[in-house]
């Protein structure tokens, strides 16, 4: 008997998963690979449950999830005027919090959690680094204060961060010209 077609739940956007592995012998662009794209809830979970947990990646690796067509780099025209809400984690949090925070970030993206400002979202990146992992949501226009701060407030709430914790938004233009420790926050929530 023929199987009934399974109903799927389409997402607002098609998303692309990118993987970066730091191999110093190759140019940076060669280390960044598009893994796959998806545009349904079901395909998101199929992908998520079949790839390595972020906490198990080796140092120097990144996962990026961006709207299809946007490359996960400052230079992309959809990113270059934007910035990122940055979450920096302690070394200990890789084991206790990292995977849950990354999953929550992904659910915010694919579920369009930022209401009318979800259109401002370009994607999200997780950096696995020995000195401390980072998660960020990238938005397309750093000067759009209303949208950026709305996204920041919702994101902080969704991550379950204490009101005492402050997270910052950095414009890519500032990040690109300064070392990370010196990049000033354009907004905080």
């Amino acid at each position: 008997a023929a199987l009934e077609p399974v109903e799927t739940h389409p997402l607002q956007s098609r998303w692309a998963l990118w993987f970066f592995k730091n191999m110093k012998s190759q140019p940076w662009q060669c280390n960044l690979r598009l893994v796959t794209t998806f545009n349904t809830v079901e395909d998101f979970w199929a992908l998520h449950t079949h790839i390595q947990l972020a906490s198990k990646l080796s140092s120097g690796c990144d996962y990026s999830i961006f709207k299809d067509g946007i490359e996960p780099m400052w230079e992309d025209s959809r990113n270059k005027r934007g910035g990122r809400w940055l979450i920096t984690l302690s070394k200990q949090q890789r084991h206790s919090d990292l995977d849950a925070l990354w999953l929550e970030t992904l659910l915010c993206l694919i579920g369009e959690a930022f209401d009318e400002y979800s259109e401002e979202v370009c994607g999200a990146v997780i950096n696995i680094r020995a000195k401390g992992d980072k998660i960020a949501i990238w938005t397309r226009e750093a000067e759009n204060r209303e949208a950026v701060t709305y996204i920041g407030r919702v994101y902080k709430e969704r991550l379950g961060l204490s009101s005492k914790v402050v997270i910052g938004y950095q414009a890519h233009a500032d990040t690109a010209t300064k070392s990370s420790s010196l990049t000033k926050n354009k907004f905080v929530v």
């Binding site: 739940h9 079901e42 998101f44 979970w45 199929a46 694919i110 579920g111 369009e112 959690a113």
Partner: peptide, 20 residues
Amino acid sequence: EKKSYDREFLLGFQFIVASM
């Protein structure tokens, strides 16, 4: 129509898909 989903709805599909 904008397709938005809350977290509980999305999480509800996690193990259904994983078991397929």
